[in-house]
Design a protein around this nucleic acid. Structure first.
Length: 595
RNA sequence: GCACCCGUAGCUCAGCUGGAUAGAGCGUUGCCCUCCGAAGGCAAAGGUCAUAGGUUCGACUCCUAUCGGGUGCGCCA
């Protein structure tokens, strides 16, 4: 696999670094300066050139000279650079750089050269990252509330892969708590039903959903009437195992509808059912460090706890690691708290080689972050790092009206219903077209609209429009290949230096931003930035396309100039490639034509 | 009471881990289709970035306090 060449911004940053180091060698700047805070970024205003660096301002204090003086010194070095057309010092010490137009042509060639690898990065340095997401309780089908976290986690994982990390996608199966016993009892009822018994109404406290009917039938087929004479203690484990397996199968199939897969499904029960009790081992580990003690907790504030009992309990010293209070590890019945299992679980992640962990949780778990991060610190001696991404609620609407009830399940809308109605692409893109920590309105009617108001359509249409241009261009360039790999190869030697219209150069600038966007979005764990970037790119592309209406000389296909046409097709191809690449990161398809 | 998240244009939201005169879509207003690329395009208006302090060359971004909205607060997962 070829390593993509450093992108334009990284390239220019390296030149700025080199200039600083040269000045250090000459004694103009002190030796050993920390260049970490030096950045090269696109300018917001065209009058400031193409790129700007803050080098002089950042280094001024340490170098003990005026920013302007340093800026002039760096600028003088950069003026000799073969990539740079002009250098200006402005404002408090910005160094504004204008690149030679050849640099943009080179950047465009890089897109065609790297093909689908364009934008891929090595910042991740193949470091292992564990991304845990979904982890819905195995007690029923997935509902809409789950799908934002599912899509977010999946896109984040793809983004990290694209940025060069070694990513493991993981699902934690909560198969050890009381809720799976409830599931087992609910399934047992359906088992009796399958054997012809009249079960009447589903009792309060059990899961009423029809989705358990097939589980009951499967149990009847496997066990016959054997379980009927057994006590609950006897039949429950087998029924539970069967029911959980059935629920997980259903969940996997729901996820498959969104093209989401996990490499690892980690069972909570496996922590305690193996040869060694890993939860006990983890508690012992913490106890040996002095982080476990017997003590009392003040009663909880907020809503009163009716069965509150002040008692001495086994506590983890979470406050020593940044949490607000110490947290219990054992319940009054002697069983492990969910938190205790969770510590052991995250310890296994670390023990499996993941120093970097990302968990994607729903907004109602926000209060749980500190204690798990505290636990990870304790259990990994500060080596492991957990970033928790909270995804906010989705408000499901239809034409602006809230959608509450479900046709199928009665009390919640299933993920499957939503995907069936609007398609995976619309769900995925819209879930990512917002910061994860902001609540999201999802309107079933609007997301399938084929208009500019619908970002999903707008971006996909950009890709399709590119292909439409290729199809039309074949009337003139009859040997233009339709297959994308061959077409890219065909366009690779196009005379892209002929692209000099400001609108074209603007699009080239936008394309050059993509690799930098991938890196920063990956480092920030923010896949939504890619969605917004693609929207901007599509917008620029559509704008250029429509300019051809008033200005025929700007059309992509110029019938009497094959060389220019080919150059413009190279630009179109680059846009198409980047749109396809970005959509792939988001898990959204890039269609060749809109139906 | 405490912790965490949010507060940016009339509405829905971006703002690239501290950069220059805060951006986009919708909506509003004004132009642009006898024909060639209008499932539209161009342009304008619209802001005390919740408020008040602080940190520094520089703050929507970091810190403190206050106001408003949300979430959570032994032995649920």
């Amino acid at each position: 696999m070829s390593v993509p060449s450093p992108h334009l911004f990284a390239n220019v940053l390296a030149r700025v670094h080199a200039a600083c180091q040269a000045l250090a060698a000459e004694g103009v700047l002190p030796a050993g300066l920390d260049l970490a805070r030096v950045v090269v970024e696109p300018t917001r205003e065209a009058s400031h050139g193409d790129m700007a660096t803050n080098a002089a301002m950042v280094l001024a204090k340490e170098a003990k000279s005026k920013p302007k003086d340093i800026a002039e010194a760096i600028a003088a070095k950069l003026r000799d650079d073969d990539l740079i057309a002009s250098v200006d010092v402005a404002g408090p010490g910005f160094i504004n750089l204008t690149l030679k137009t050849a640099a943009w042509a080179d950047a465009l060639r890089a897109v065609l050269r790297d093909c689908e690898r364009y934008g891929h990065s090595a910042v991740g340095a193949a470091e292992k990252v564990n991304v845990e997401y979904v982890s819905a309780n195995p007690t029923g089908p997935m509902h809409v509330g789950h799908c934002r976290g599912a899509v977010f986690g999946d896109a984040l994982a793809s983004l990290l892969v694209t940025a060069g990390y070694d990513v493991n996608r993981e699902y934690y199966i909560n198969d050890a708590g009381a809720q799976v016993d409830v599931l087992a009892r609910s399934a047992f009822l359906r088992y009796r039903e399958a054997l012809g018994q009249d079960i009447g109404a589903i009792p309060e406290g059990l899961y009423p959903g029809d989705y358990l009917v097939p589980i009951g039938q499967a149990l009847a087929a496997e066990f016959g009437e054997r379980l009927l004479n057994q006590s609950e203690a006897e039949w429950l484990p087998a029924v539970r195992t069967k029911a959980i397996a059935g629920m997980m199968e259903m969940i996997r199939s729901d996820l498959a509808a969104l093209n989401i897969t996990h490499e690892v499904f980690f069972s909570e029960r496996s922590l305690i059912s193996g040869e060694t009790d890993l939860v006990a081992a983890t508690i012992d580990f913490l106890r040996a460090k002095g982080d476990v003690y017997l003590g009392r907790l003040p009663p909880p504030k907020g809503k009163p706890v009716d069965d509150y009992e002040d008692r001495e309990q086994t506590l983890f010293r979470a406050t020593a690691y940044g949490d607000d209070v110490d947290r219990p590890l054992l319940k009054s019945d002697g069983g492990y708290t969910y938190f205790a299992s969770d510590i052991a679980y995250h310890k296994t992640k670390f023990d499996r080689g993941f120093r970097n962990m990302v968990d994607v949780w729903g907004s109602d778990h926000g209060g749980y972050i500190k204690r798990v991060q505290a636990a990870i610190k304790a259990v990994t001696d500060g080596q492991g790092v957990l970033d928790v991404k909270i995804v906010q609620l989705v408000k499901l609407l239809r034409n602006g009206e809230p959608v509450k009830m479900s046709k199928r399940s009665g009390d919640f809308v299933t993920l499957r219903e939503v995907v069936d109605e609007v398609g995976s692409d619309a769900v995925r893109f819209m879930m990512l077209f917002r910061k994860n920590d902001a609540v999201l309105d999802f309107d079933l009617a609007k997301v399938i609209e084929q208009s500019k108001d619908n970002p999903v359509f707008y971006v996909q249409y950009g890709h399709a429009r590119g292909h439409s241009i290729f199809r039309n261009a074949r009337e003139m360039l009859t040997d233009l290949p339709l297959e994308s790999g061959a077409r890219i190869a065909y366009l690779r030697d196009a005379a892209v230096e002929r692209l000099d219209d400001p609108a074209e150069l603007g699009l080239m600038r936008q394309l050059a931003l993509y690799p930098r966007m991938i890196e920063s979005a990956a480092l920030a764990h923010e896949p939504h930035r890619i969605a917004f970037y693609l929207y901007d790119l599509a917008s620029d592309f559509h704008a250029l396309w429509t300019r051809g209406r008033d200005m025929p000389h700007l059309r992509f296909i110029i019938t009497n100039d094959a060389v220019l046409t080919k150059a413009r097709l190279a630009l179109v191809q680059s846009v198409v490639s980047v749109l396809a690449s970005g959509l792939a990161v988001l898990g959204v398809t890039a269609p060749d034509e809109m139906r």
